[in-house]
């Protein structure tokens, strides 16, 4: 009976050992850590009612479209944002480049990841080029002290809610209204977030 058990053990070792020899653990890539993007304020990034030939209209950070990023506080997230350079009459992309049916739009952005409820006052500006940006930051701003030990790997008893924090992403900007047709203008801003 003892001899049979020994044979099985050897078989398992031979099967798995090639993979085990080169293994690496990245504590930022545990698949059972969830990451949630939500809205702090409902609705569009809305410039409201503007007048033809009205020039530049701005929505500042205090009136921004604010998204919430809920994730594990000691992990980094990568935010990938792409916006169109114009808003189109009736949201129709076929109007792109048509001076009478498209309004130039310039995206601006910032984030806040301070402890507790993030605030505009503690937000950090994001450099946006061509209405797109890729930015990495921790869900919770790291403190001015040496890093602690790595977190324990998740187990069945792991509860993410105990290590969760919320960071804010502020999206705002300006439009330049020229001699365009009256009507409703819109376009999309696409946001993708991942853990690093």
């Amino acid at each position: 009976m003892k001899l049979i058990k020994f044979s099985i053990s050897i078989l398992v070792l031979l099967c798995w050992s090639p993979q085990a020899s080169g293994q690496e653990i990245n504590f930022g890539e545990f698949g059972n850590y969830t990451l949630t993007l939500g809205e702090l304020n409902a609705g569009d990034l809305d410039f409201g009612v503007v007048t033809r030939n009205g020039g530049v209209y701005s929505v500042g950070i205090n009136n921004s479209k604010t998204l919430t990023i809920t994730g594990v506080k000691y992990l980094d997230v990568i935010i990938d944002v792409t916006a169109q350079n114009e808003m189109y009459l009736n949201g129709n992309p076929a109007n792109a480049g048509d001076a009478a049916k498209a309004i130039p739009f310039t995206l601006e952005a910032a984030f806040a990841n301070n402890e507790g409820t993030p605030t505009v006052a503690q937000s950090r500006f994001i450099n946006v080029t061509g209405n797109t940006f890729l930015r990495q930051f921790p869900v919770l701003k790291r403190q001015n002290r040496p890093p602690g030990p790595p977190p324990p790997p998740p187990t069945n008893a792991f509860e993410q809610s105990q290590v969760e924090e919320i960071a804010y992403l502020y999206l705002y900007g300006s439009i330049n209204v020229g001699n365009v047709d009256a009507g409703s203008y819109s376009s999309d801003i696409i946001i993708t977030i991942n853990y690093d």
């Binding site: 890539e29 569009d44 410039f47 991942n194 853990y195």
Partner: peptide, 26 residues
């Protein structure tokens, strides 16, 4: 060890789309 490596391979991701809008009047 092999089991731990397998857990690392998946990654959380979240996508979102919002509208930017305005209404132009004469």
């Amino acid at each position: 060890l092999v089991l731990a490596t397998n857990i690392n391979t998946s990654q959380a991701q979240s996508d979102f789309s919002i509208n930017v809008s305005a209404r132009v009047i004469s």
